[in-house]
Design a binder for these strands. Structure first.
Lengths: 205, 205
DNA sequence: ATCGTATGAGAGCGATCGCTCCCAAATGGA
DNA sequence: TCCATTTGGGAGCGATCGCTCTCATACGAT
């Protein structure tokens, strides 16, 4: 019926997400976005309403890709719970295994930058947080049921601590902290879940 | 020798710190600062060079007050290590016991907002982080020596986890999370330090 | 009392902010 | 082919950004 777009909207959102991720909301200008997405201001505003709405789109895209990927990785473990948790946490902060420090987590960065001032943003960050919590809960619950974790493990409390640890690790990732220290943190956090399952006692001799 | 100031420089820095704390670096304009400190732009720039330098002053002031106070509170405990640690963590996130969520921690907010892009800022946030780590280390080491904590406690790892937990709690405080859940997190983190000291065995009968 | 000096007040600098408008170009339906 | 419609390009809107300048004012040293 009319002239078609010369750009892919999804790809544009993905690139915008990347820019917000690295620089944060306030430090990213509309002109920065236009340059990154190869969009003129008119196209950008016609497609995405305004900067704030585009940021909400970016948060949604992040949740649909990064957050969803993290959730799946944790759910489809196929290995002992402790190992699965350890590998997952290492993977979370280990994307920064390259040269320069990773950008951390867009959700964490956004939560600290904008706090509770923006309700539309807060709703999305809280939803993302809840996804992580429930994924951790499922894994721990499975471990408790199949005997890999202590039966008297306080599930609520363990989830809260692991979730909080994830946030702290994300902050430290963005701050460029030594990956080895983050690995130490992860190992100790898992140890805190209680004694490992008793190995079948080897016959003594 | 000349006309004296009509404002207290330290108090101005304190007010600037408060504003940066609540709003973040990028979202705080020089005019906002001028209004808050009751300073005209000329006075502000003559006294504090520029916005970035004032922000560095604010970070230093925060470390000299808030961070220093936190360190002292942890050092001058005078109670069992676990109780001291618990009270300290509750106090850290419990300033937000009022109506609206607290502003979190200026150092954490800054670290996530600016990442590693600003070396002068990073140097200060890392220094603040190290203060917290060493304070935690001293406390845990004391607890290990006097038998309140397991003698085989991995000090390095425990410090890393507690420090990471503090960062996570700060994020959650700023995100306005339920204080009760934060308390749950804190209790479980302390439980993870190992079994409590064995009570003197009561005579059985 | 006089003078040198730093202050508070505020206009205003160029640049950039988020955003809007106008117009030629490009498309699909008739 | 012609028209209705939406696009990409880009000038430019008012507002605000970080920051500088000028100048009368108010103080301390002499």
């Amino acid at each position: 019926m009319a002239r078609p777009r010369q750009f892919d909207e999804q790809e544009a959102v993905a690139q915008a997400t990347d820019l917000f991720w690295r620089r944060g909301y306030n430090a990213t200008s509309v002109r920065d976005l236009g340059a990154e997405l190869h969009l003129t201001p008119s196209s950008l505003y016609r497609t995405f309403e305004d900067k704030h709405t585009l940021f909400l789109r970016a948060l949604d895209h992040y949740r649909a890709t990064e957050s969803a990927q993290a959730r799946e990785r944790l759910a489809t473990a196929g290995q002992p719970v402790r190992d699965a948790l350890r590998d997952w946490l290492l993977w979370l902060v280990g994307c920064a295994a390259g040269t320069e420090p990773g950008p951390g987590c867009l959700v964490v960065n956004t939560a600290t930058e904008l706090g509770t001032t923006d309700t539309e943003v807060s709703a999305r960050t809280e939803a993302a947080f809840e996804v992580t919590r429930s994924a951790l809960r499922s894994l721990l619950d499975e471990g408790r049921r199949n005997g890999e974790l202590p039966t008297d493990l306080d599930l609520d409390a363990a989830v809260e601590l692991l979730f909080t640890t994830v946030l702290g690790l994300r902050v430290r990732e963005r701050a460029g902290h030594d990956p080895h220290r983050l690995a130490t943190t992860i190992d100790f956090a898992i140890r805190g879940l209680g004694p490992a399952p008793t190995e079948p006692v080897r016959s003594e001799r």
